[in-house]
Nucleic acid binder design. Sequence first.
DNA 1: CCAACATTCGTAAACGTTTACGGAGTGCGT
DNA 2: ACGCACTCCGTAAACGTTTACGAATGTTGG
Lengths: 354, 354
Amino acid sequence: MKGIRQLAEHLDISIGTVSRALNGKPDVNEETRRRVLAAAEELGYVANQSGRSLRQGETKVIGLMIESSAEAVENADNFFLGVTSGLQSVFARHKLDLIMLPCPSDEDPHEYLKRIVARRIVDAMIISNMQRIDRRIDLLSRAKIPFVAVGRSLSPGNFPWIDLDFEGVADRAVERLVARGHRRIAITAPSSEVNLGYVFIESYRRALARHGIAFDPSLVIRVKSSEQGGYQAAHELLLLEERPTAVILIYELMAIGLYRRLMETGVVPGRDLAVIGFRDAPRARFLNPSLSCFRMSLYDLGVALGQTLLANVPAYRAFYPDAGRNVVWPLELMPGESDAFEIGTAKRSSSPSG
Amino acid sequence: MKGIRQLAEHLDISIGTVSRALNGKPDVNEETRRRVLAAAEELGYVANQSGRSLRQGETKVIGLMIESSAEAVENADNFFLGVTSGLQSVFARHKLDLIMLPCPSDEDPHEYLKRIVARRIVDAMIISNMQRIDRRIDLLSRAKIPFVAVGRSLSPGNFPWIDLDFEGVADRAVERLVARGHRRIAITAPSSEVNLGYVFIESYRRALARHGIAFDPSLVIRVKSSEQGGYQAAHELLLLEERPTAVILIYELMAIGLYRRLMETGVVPGRDLAVIGFRDAPRARFLNPSLSCFRMSLYDLGVALGQTLLANVPAYRAFYPDAGRNVVWPLELMPGESDAFEIGTAKRSSSPSG
DNA sequence: CCAACATTCGTAAACGTTTACGGAGTGCGT
DNA sequence: ACGCACTCCGTAAACGTTTACGAATGTTGG
């Protein structure tokens, strides 16, 4: 089956009527519509997307931009795959398809997106891995391509985003550790160039301040958010003159490497060092000791992202009247054994400067 | 910038000449070409893909179909992300873009692919997760869409594929374990409906036969290829009346769960039970004891897939004269501590029936 | 019986490109 | 002066759809 023209000839009906019948337009006889649909099914006709896109100016495709950097691969992140199913559950209602756009690791993400946008391959975009200053926001705004970002950015402009509640996590993690007597609490984070690396540490700093604990820069460990990074973090941590009694990991996967290094040196996690993780739980269940972890449902996050996005594209806005434009996504604490101990009261009452 | 028409008017040149200039056609004055390229750059013009696709009948986009099933998400597989970078390194030379097509978990993969194909969104496809009988092969062949499959299938037809060397892995794993005195060797695999689950076990069975060891069905553990599956596998393994002394895992990630369950029951991996893993190494380095593992370079595999695919696309065939059409991809053994011990010679010389 | 309207369908333009074809201009040899 | 080849460029058709417009037919109301 070639195109709508052959289908029309086969039915001995005009091409316009066939199109109207297939697209559910009102002004077509129901009997005719039935015949057309039957013939289309039989001959396996589906409208050519290029022709349709060209005429309508839309592709019915939503893009999800991801990075395929070496680090992303190493992290073996299931984040996007998890979010994908939630997104698709929303898009399916509107017969929208989702494609993932992996930005080559040797290409500038901004240039890559520019090409995708210019080629008009997608109607809307989901972007992530936000930089503190991210030109993609300006690019998409100018091109009038609706989008939603996973994560905030300092770039100007009021754009839709959903961000994880880093502030809440840092706050509650510190709170929880302090309540157990910890005063020297280390934390890991990526470079402060990515927005997350900046925000997380700032929240941590504020949380410490609220408990009257002085901020010690040497307790901020900048490593990659991977197992290897966790190993590295443990290594650096153990070299510190005054060893911390707790550590907050920005990525739960790091715990595997961290545990490994700790074991090597005879330090027992959950007894000698409290550990709190972040972002995903299934993994954490299999660690020993089990990891205390802030988790969320990737599926639900995907649904929210889909709704927020579609609330910003005119054709679907009406379906999502109360989708949030800017959402701080809450995380739930799953307590484990990795921080289930208390520091002696002697240290608890020591001076803040100690 | 709207389209080529505006660009042509701005330059006061005909639209045809602009197109020829941009596409590197020969019959255009070099000075004119320079002007056109400069103006296009300045005004940020990029050809609309729908218009181009419609005219040329090709999209310059290659699709990589992946499954976003719950299990795939849980596995947090970095397989596709890793392959992606290798693929893109090949595609970049031809200015082809790669998109990932996540099949919704509640949709039939065959129907999903049918829709994508009919819409003519991609010029070529990479499919994976092959079923023993996989209708997608017939679908793509009929639609005359070039493709390459990751994995073999029993479906008829001579199609391009690259498959991991399961036979070699089973063979060498058994060989290695037998050399260390093992006779009761368990193995894990997914359902025999997916081709891999069938082939892997058959290879294992043949390898055993070569060493005169009887095949014991109770030693084949059918569990999910995930951490949880590993936990489950260890559980079932420990319940066996005559406990095996070694186990071959089809997916290295399972080792995490397996170790966990073993520890819980006081069985020490690498001393009481030999473990050999499969597919990816970075993780394995952080296990304790370190996992003996058959590994490969995902990047190289991606490159090979890209070349084999393009060798089947007429326009690019000439670039890849000696790309293999059917490749059995070799894996390299990275020895670890998890199987670095020998079984006592007493058992070694026991009767085959024992 | 005619106007007004509803229903159903065909016609043709438009979307943005690429490309076959031919025309205009130039230079060259005869 | 003429034909020829060559270089460069404009014209228009084609790709497969959707959709505004109007035509044809049947129906209703006065």
